[in-house]
Simulated scan of single mutants.
Amino acid sequence: MSGTAFVGTSGWRYPRWRGDFYPGGLVQRRELEYLAERLPSVELNGSFYSLQRPESYRRWRDSVPEDFVFAVKGSRYVTHMLRLTNVGVALANFFASGVLALGSTLGPILWQLPERVEFDPEVLDAFLDSLPRTTGSALALAREHDARLNGRAWLDIESDVPLRYAIEPRSESFRDPHAVEILRAHGVALVLADTAGRWPAFDAVTTDHVYVRLHGSTELYASGYTSAELDTWADRVRQWRDGTGEDGMPRDVYVYFDNDARGRAPHDAVALDARLR
């Protein structure tokens, strides 16, 4: 049995894509629907900048097929301001904001760390331990939201199912083997990020899924991927998906292109997805 590869883009609302990836005249509210007809997944990144509203999550879910998958980027308040410490209320607010309204389309939750957050074993272990492991436990945590979410919280789930997480460090200190041990102990994926050499590329596989973010191979957020580069990434994804790597374990693989500055992301994502099909 093989895993499944979910290829998509980091976000979908970019003016540069209009009249290029998106056909001229396509109304903005249908852009996600158009993307979801061509790709199996997308990384929802507005949740990184601010708490979204339940009606937004419901609208996004209603715009995609039932088997579509949203990866959700965790709040930067947790990662950049609190730096993974004393995060109880912030996590409650995040899960109460509507994330659970995605229902069966909810995929992994990504925590992107700033470069200044270095590896601290106690901090990392405590943070990962605080993450709810199922939608049921996430709902219980969401009920502890503070007054900011009064009247706008989503406190409902369709079923109690496992949650997946990925963490994207940008400090070389996470090269420490102890960091990998902690991630494996908690079943959290260590993101493999291609950042044109700007930040470290960690390639340790730490759980039953792999999370890849492609920010550009030669120019951060801007450069496209050549046909040869896409072939190489397709081979790597197949190894993880089909279990032909060292441990022989098939894994689900999530790959998101973030090289959107010149509109390359959706084209590269469609090209990689085609190779994997």
Results as ranks from 00 to 15, higher is better:
residue 96 A to Y: 13
residue 95 F to W: 12
residue 74 G to T: 03
residue 76 R to C: 02
residue 102 L to N: 08
residue 78 V to F: 04
residue 73 K to P: 02
residue 99 V to L: 03
residue 91 L to T: 03
residue 93 N to T: 10
residue 100 L to W: 01
residue 78 V to C: 03
residue 84 L to A: 08
residue 83 R to P: 02
residue 81 M to V: 15
residue 94 F to Y: 14
residue 79 T to K: 04
residue 96 A to V: 14
residue 79 T to V: 02
residue 76 R to M: 03
residue 75 S to I: 03
residue 74 G to A: 05
residue 90 A to T: 15
residue 89 V to W: 04
residue 82 L to C: 13
residue 77 Y to W: 12
residue 75 S to G: 05
residue 97 S to E: 14
residue 81 M to G: 04
residue 102 L to M: 09
residue 100 L to N: 00
residue 92 A to F: 01
residue 83 R to N: 06
residue 73 K to H: 03
residue 90 A to M: 13
residue 80 H to E: 07
residue 91 L to S: 09
residue 80 H to I: 09
residue 75 S to D: 08
residue 84 L to I: 07
residue 102 L to P: 10
residue 103 G to C: 07
residue 88 G to C: 03
residue 89 V to L: 11
residue 95 F to V: 03
residue 79 T to F: 02
residue 88 G to K: 08
residue 95 F to R: 11
residue 77 Y to I: 15
residue 75 S to L: 11
residue 94 F to K: 10
residue 91 L to E: 10
residue 94 F to V: 09
residue 88 G to W: 11
residue 81 M to D: 06
residue 100 L to H: 01
residue 94 F to Q: 07
residue 102 L to D: 09
residue 86 N to Y: 11
residue 90 A to Q: 14
residue 98 G to V: 00
residue 92 A to I: 05
residue 74 G to E: 05
residue 95 F to D: 01
residue 78 V to S: 07
residue 89 V to E: 14
residue 87 V to W: 05
residue 77 Y to Q: 15
residue 100 L to D: 00
residue 91 L to D: 11
residue 103 G to Q: 08
residue 73 K to C: 06
residue 101 A to D: 13
residue 98 G to T: 00
residue 85 T to E: 14
residue 79 T to G: 05
residue 90 A to N: 14
residue 78 V to R: 01
residue 77 Y to D: 13
residue 84 L to H: 05
residue 84 L to Q: 05
residue 73 K to R: 12
residue 77 Y to M: 14
residue 76 R to K: 05
residue 88 G to M: 01
residue 94 F to N: 11
residue 90 A to L: 14
residue 74 G to D: 04
residue 89 V to N: 07
residue 85 T to Y: 04
residue 73 K to I: 02
residue 97 S to H: 08
residue 86 N to K: 15
residue 96 A to R: 12
residue 81 M to S: 08
residue 101 A to C: 12
residue 96 A to G: 10
residue 92 A to H: 03
residue 84 L to F: 03
residue 98 G to I: 00
residue 101 A to R: 14
residue 102 L to G: 04
residue 103 G to H: 07
residue 91 L to W: 10
residue 76 R to Q: 06
residue 82 L to E: 11
residue 94 F to I: 09
residue 92 A to V: 06
residue 87 V to S: 14
residue 92 A to W: 00
residue 81 M to Q: 08
residue 81 M to A: 15
residue 76 R to T: 03
residue 76 R to G: 03
residue 103 G to F: 06
residue 98 G to M: 01
residue 89 V to C: 10
residue 76 R to F: 01
residue 97 S to K: 08
residue 101 A to G: 13
residue 85 T to F: 05
residue 93 N to Q: 13
residue 83 R to M: 05
residue 84 L to P: 09
